[in-house]
Every structure is written in structure tokens, then in C-alpha cells.
Design a binder for these strands. Sequence first.
DNA 1: TTGCAAAACGAACGATCGTTAGGCGATGAT
DNA 2: ATCATCGCCTAACGATCGTTCGTTTTGCAA
Lengths: 205, 205
Amino acid sequence: MDDADDVNLLPARSDADGTHRRLLEVALLTFGERGFHGVSVRELAEAAGIRPSSMYAHLASKEALLMELVAMGHEEHRDRLRAARDSEPDNVTERMRALVRAHVRLHVEYPLLARVANRELHALKPAGLEKVRAIREEAQGMLLQTIQDGVGAGVFSVPDAWLALAVIGGSGIRVAEWWSPAMGYTPQEVEDTYADFAIRLLTAP
Amino acid sequence: MDDADDVNLLPARSDADGTHRRLLEVALLTFGERGFHGVSVRELAEAAGIRPSSMYAHLASKEALLMELVAMGHEEHRDRLRAARDSEPDNVTERMRALVRAHVRLHVEYPLLARVANRELHALKPAGLEKVRAIREEAQGMLLQTIQDGVGAGVFSVPDAWLALAVIGGSGIRVAEWWSPAMGYTPQEVEDTYADFAIRLLTAP
DNA sequence: TTGCAAAACGAACGATCGTTAGGCGATGAT
DNA sequence: ATCATCGCCTAACGATCGTTCGTTTTGCAA
């Protein structure tokens, strides 16, 4: 568990420690605020308490630092969606609820990581971008499949499954742009409400 | 009307012409792809067919170019929402539909402008940022007020009005990230479906 | 206490950044 | 015909960019 006085920065999956971890955290904070190209390695180094040249004992390049963050965010997201999907094998509605809750919770718990992962893809080299896109496709596929399962079972009814996915997925992604503890919502409240909205949206009146 | 062979770049409200307009268009294309800090003035100049120094006869700075785009996008958005809201003074449901359609349509017609306006705010100076935030507040207020009107009239029913706004507004914003004519949806189709989803979401089963 | 690997350092590399200064040629009104 | 204006030019400014080099410091094992 992280300290209580600041939002989670890196998910538990990260095994980075020491200076490497500090650099990841610093990069997350600054990239999340001003974007990859808006932050210099000198800034990163200063925030991490070392000299710019010392960074290169811990990472191959500035872009590798971004790639590490983006990959971490996408893998965490995909794995959480997988767990959510598998937690409700029998009930499509509950499966959908679990997926939306997991999707929203990720963006509430790691808003900075989600922001970086969603808007700095343009700074990745083609190889890295392709790897990330494959993970995105997996996550998207789980949501889409569940929507289609529900439609097939007659419990959901939508004019277009992909557009429903776009609304549900997109609104969850945006949570990372506005959420903060100061907003007065608990994570539980947000994810439950979003799950409710998703079910409403998927079930015809 | 713009040429049919490419997506709209600048809305009709822009009175820029000649080299100034060309610079705005080039900035929109490149900022939209790689972000404000990811594009140099030399790149902008080359894409516009002039030398870097010649740009400064048409604009005060690179940041002013961004500010012009961001302000244009936000003003167009607010004005369209205003027109939509005023088009249906009597029927809350239809007013909400009109607002969502306008919101989505803006993001479908000007995806690049919307992207720049939504993710490059960090590169604006405080004064510009404040101006933009005020316009955002106006637009957001119109959507929120209409939701609350519907709840007050008993035609909408939501656990939390602001979270409903976050879902409806956020999903519309995300349209700018995925929409392209090649997706196979018509703008009409998207905005109608999103409006349908919004009403579903706002009305209890 | 010595030895060694890890980690930090100062200095500098060539490249590129946003911007300015001053000149040159075409255009259009007087 | 003259002259001011305009749009673009070349050249360069100082600053900062990401990264590399070789050296020194640090912390732990022998």
C-alpha cells in the first residue's frame, strides 16, 4: 500500500526500486502534467535528485522511460479486465458490470499513468507502439465480446455494439482527466455509478 | 464548404486567410499528431512552404498559434451547444438530445481541433488557460443544467447528475480520438446513437 | 584493510530549439 | 515615376536538447 497522503503512482506490478523507481515516478508526474516532449531529461534528473548523466546508468533513453510507463499501464489494465471478465463466467450483466468497474477503477487509482498511456503514444517508436496497440486490442476485445454476448443472449440491446463500446470505454478513460480525491466521490461510488450507467445504456427501455 | 477529399480543419468562424490560415492548418495537423512540444517552428514553416523567420510576420509566437487554435475550438463548441440548447426550449429530452448531437458532431467534424483543444492546455500561459477554462465551464454548465432540469421535471433519473455529465461529455470528447470516415459510420449515425445512449443513461428502467 | 562493482559525478558533444535583425524584391497607391 | 508597405528571405543569436565520455565517490565483501 502506498502512503496515504498521495495518489498511487505506480501499480504493484512494477518491481522497480531505488533510483530507477524514483525516475519512473518523477517521469509519471511530469509527463502526466506537461507531456513527454514538454519535459527535459535535466528536469527529470533534478526532480529525482541526481545529475542528467547519471540517469543513463538506469535506463537506455528518455523514450525507454516512457515506454516502460506506457507498457506498465496497458498491461495492468488488460490484466485487471481479464480478472474481471473471468470472475463472472455465467452472468453477462454481472460480467459487464465487473469489467466496467475494473476499467473505471484503474483510471481512478492511476490517473497519471492512464493519462500518459493514453496521450503520449505518439512519442513511442513503431515497435513499442505496436506492442501497446496489441494490448489495447485485447482489452477492447474483452469489452466488445461481452457486449456482443449480452446482445446474443437477448439481455442487451444496442443499435451498434462497437459504438456502445466506444461510449463505455471512452467515458472510463476520461475519468483519469477529472478524478481527484478532492472531487468528493469515492472510487467505489464512481465505479458503481459508471457500471450502472453502462447497464442502462445496454438495456433498451 | 471545404473540399470533399479531406476532413474539415478549421471551422467557418475562422476568418484567417492566406499564409496565416495555412499556418493554422499546418499547426493543427502536426500538433494534433505529435503535440505542441513535439513540433518545431521549423517543421511548421516547412510544411507551410515558408522560412521559419517568416512566420513571425503572421503571429506573435508559437504559443500564440496554439492559443488561437484552442480558443477557436472552445468557442465553436460553446456556440454550438448554445444553439442546440436554445433550439428546444420546451422539451427537456429533446433539448438533451440536441446538446449531445451538437457535442458529438463537433468532435466528428473537427477531430484534430478537438484533440488539440483537449490535450494541449498545459502549454498555454496562465492567462490563456483561464480564458479557455471559462468557456469550458459555460459548455459544461449547459449540459449539467439540462440534466438537472430533466431530473427536476421527473423525466430523468440519475444517481448523480455530475457523474452523468462526466459520462456523456467524456464519451463525446473521446469521439475525436477514434473517428474517421474510414470507420464506416456516418456523422449522423454517430451523433444519433450517442444521443440515444445519453437518454437511455438518463432514464431509469 | 583492501578490492571491486555500482552509482554518481563534471564536462562536453553535436544538434536543435524559439526568436530576432536586417535586407531584398514585388506590389499598389500617389 | 516614386515611394511606402508588405511578404519573404538569409543569417545568426543564446539557450537548451538528449546523450556520451572518463573519472570519482560510495558501499559492501573478502
